[in-house]
């Protein structure tokens, strides 16, 4: 399973890579939405995308809209992982096509719980 992590913070990319690796994912990282779209156009085939909201070049919201506007990526599981915590922001992200929403700060258990909601990993046990 391949996860695409899109965040302009190297620290967050490293943290998410460590958590997802522990759950058995290979991780491909991108620094902003445009970088992520380029990686997809270059042939990357992730099973899951985790995307920040506030990033340079193309922010997470614009990235989701671009992604969902392309039939190839319409069903790709996507979770926003962001410091934006207002209810309107959560609603906007979901309306744009995010399947889940995780607010920073987060723990590995929270990531795992959210992936379980997406049907991508089990929290049994």
């Amino acid at each position: 399973m391949l996860a695409l992590v899109v965040d302009d913070s190297a620290v967050i990319r490293t943290v998410l890579t460590r958590i997802l690796s522990g759950l058995g994912y290979e991780v491909l990282a991108a620094a902003h939405g445009r970088d992520a779209l380029n990686k997809l156009e270059a042939g990357a085939r992730p099973d899951l995308v985790l995307v920040d909201w506030n990033m340079p070049e193309m922010n997470g919201y614009e990235f989701i809209r671009a992604l969902r506007g392309d039939p190839r990526w319409r069903a790709l599981p996507l979770m926003m992982v962001t410091t934006e915590t207002e209810i309107d922001q959560v609603a906007r992200a979901l309306a744009a096509g995010a399947n889940e929403y995780l607010m920073k700060p987060f723990t590995p258990e929270m990531v795992q719980d959210k992936l379980a909601l997406l049907g991508l990993t089990s929290t049994q046990g």
Binding site: T85, I87, V90, A91, M110, D113, L117
Partner: peptide, 20 residues
Amino acid sequence: SQLEVNRGLPAALLIKYFRK
């Protein structure tokens, strides 16, 4: 808390049944 609603609660239910 934000940490508690981050755990296991689908975002769609968060915005439907909770207020900030």
